[in-house]
Amino acid sequence: MLAPSLLILVTFVLYPLVRAVWLGQQRCDNFGNNCVSRGFDQYVDMFTSREFQSALGVTVKYALLTVPLGLVLGVGLAVLADKHLRGVGVFRTVFSSTVATSVAVASLMWLFLLQPDVGVLANVGWINELFPSVKDPGWLRDPGTALVAVSMSSVWANLGFTFILVTAGLQGIPRDLHEAAAIDGAGDVRRFWSVTLPMLGPTLLFVVIVLTSRAFQAYGEIELLTQGGPAPYDSTTTVTYFIYGRNSVISGDVGLQATAAVLLFLLLLVLSVLQLSGLGRRVHYGD
C-alpha cells in the first residue's frame, strides 16, 4: 500500500535532492550536458559570490517587507471583522477573496495597476498629480521602489490566506475567556493583548512560517512584475528568481542552478528550525 507513494516521493523528491547535491559541485554546458566535477568548493564559491549575496539580500529584504506587514494586516482585519456586526459576513468574504488569486493572476492585476505606460494609476489624473512617480519613472522601474511595489502585490495576494487562518484561530478562542476578562474590567485593547494574541500563538507561528517560506520561494511575482530588474542593480532578483529566471546569469547552467538550489534548501531549513525554536518556545498551546 505504501509502494505508490514511496515510488513517487523517492523518484521526484529524494532522488532529485541527492542528485542536486551532487550536481551542485559540477559545471555543465548550456544543454546541461558534459558536466565536469569542480569539487564541493563550488558551494562556498556560490555562497560568497556577489550575485548570490545580492539575491540573498533582496530575499531577506523581501521577507521583511512582506511577512510582518502581512501578519499585522491579517490579524487586524480578522479582529476587525470578528465583532458581531450586521453584515460582517460580506466583509469576511471580501477579505478572504484574494486567496482565490494565483500568483499569475495577482501579479498581472498589480502589473496593470502599477505599469507606468499603460497602467491604471499612471493614467488617473489626480493620482498622477499626487504621486508623480507612478508615471515617471514608475514604481516598478525605479530600483529604489521596485521591491516595495512587488511586495505590495504579494501582501495583497497573501491577505486572504492570512485572514482565513486568523479568523479560524479567533473562533477557536473560548468565549468564556473574553467574557471573564470583560467582567474583570478589561477593555477591547487590553483583551486583545492579554487574551486574543496569546491564544492565537500557534496560528500566528504557522502563518509566519508559511509567509516566510513563500517569500523565500517568490518567483512568479518577480518574473511578471520586474524580471528581476530594474537593471543594473538586480534590485528584485530573489534567490529563487536567480536560480530559475530566464535572464539570470546562471540560467542554463544546471550545475550552478543546483548549487544555488541546495543553498536555498539549507537556508530554509535553518530558518524553519530557528523560527520553531525561537518563536515556537514562546507559543502557548493552551494545555
Binding site: L23, Y244, S272
Partner: peptide, 16 residues
C-alpha cells in the same frame, strides 16, 4: 520530504 522545497528538486526533475 516535507522539508524539501519544490524549488530544490525542480532542477533535477526538469531533466528527468
Amino acid at each position: 520530504t516535507l522539508l524539501v522545497p519544490l524549488e530544490v528538486t525542480l532542477v533535477v526533475n526538469r531533466r528527468l
